[in-house]
């Protein structure tokens, strides 16, 4: 197909559609994002540094990155099991369960937020069993992690599923024939083949978790220095009319997002190369 597209085509509309694309992209995305850097440029370097490295800001990065990392880790482990079970085993209701995995994509984050809070609150369905054992979830960093596990769940499963599906069973058979136990086959043969997709899924879940707002603000309790995530600190500063401070922290978040986006693109290329090999 590539060779066909590369030669001169008689298809019309290239100028029009590319023009529309670039105009709309510039007006809606690129220029507004540039406004953020433009606004930051009005801060002096010292002001910028003090805004992004204040103790409250540092505490919020620690929570946002830490909780997103932990949640992505939980999702990598359980997402691998879920993807494995959905692709390899047959059980009643499998298709329904498979469709349900996308719920966190479809359910508005605010709904997820108030629901998880209600479930894990002291008198909630799960909270009433956990709190007597000294496990407080709502209004703690653990609650933030729980919300991010919910939000990140589909990323790992949906990244792994197609790769698992395309795995050649012959390799596993060969390993078994050569005397490998099932666990050895998994560790030495399957896991290396799944690794790029697993890392990509982890990175996608992590990236989403770092910026997530709606599902977290309700369950976190929003105590400065303790359970305040970085996106909430931006909102708080905005509400206090501290536009410069909000913008500085937003720039940090945005640069991290860009970095992650580029890393994920590279990972996906790696993933394709590995699965093609």
């Amino acid at each position: 197909m590539n060779a066909a597209a590369r030669r001169r085509t008689i298809l019309p509309g290239f100028g029009l559609t590319l023009g529309v694309t670039i105009t709309y992209l510039s007006l809606l995305v690129l220029i507004p994002l540039a406004a953020l850097f433009f606004k930051t440029a009005t801060l002096s370097w010292a002001e910028f540094v003090s805004a992004v490295t204040g103790p409250r800001a540092l505490a919020s990065y620690r929570l946002s990155f830490g909780a997103a990392f932990a949640a992505a880790g939980v999702n990598a482990l359980f997402g691998l099991i879920v993807a494995w079970v959905l692709v390899r085993y047959e059980f009643p209701g499998r298709r329904l369960v498979d469709a349900m995995v996308d719920l966190p994509f479809a359910l508005p984050t605010a709904v997820a937020g108030i629901t998880l809070t209600a479930i894990f609150a002291k008198n909630g369905w799960l909270g009433r069993w956990l709190e007597p054992h000294g496990i407080a979830v709502a209004y703690t960093p653990l609650g933030v992690t729980v919300a991010l596990v919910f939000i990140g769940l589909p990323f790992v499963v949906r990244t792994l599923q197609p790769v698992l599906q395309d795995l050649e069973r012959e390799i596993e058979e060969a390993a078994a024939t050569l005397g490998a136990s099932r666990f050895q086959t998994f560790r030495r043969v399957l896991l290396p083949a799944l690794r790029p997709a697993l890392v990509t899924g982890f990175a996608l879940a992590f990236a989403r978790g770092v910026g997530e707002y709606g599902s977290v603000v309700f369950i976190s309790g929003n105590m400065p220095m303790k359970t305040e995530i970085a996106p909430l600190l931006i909102v708080t500063k905005l509400e206090q009319w501290d536009y410069a401070g909000a913008t500085a922290i937003a720039v940090v978040l945005l640069l991290v997002s860009f970095g992650l986006l580029l890393a994920i693109n590279a990972l996906q290329r790696w993933s394709r190369v590995e699965s093609a090999a």
Binding site: P32, L36, T109, T247, A250
Partner: peptide
């Protein structure tokens, strides 16, 4: 890739 909060902020 952009945090929803940052998406709102740029328009403010």
């Amino acid at each position: 890739a952009v945090s929803p909060v940052v998406s709102g902020l740029i328009f403010v």
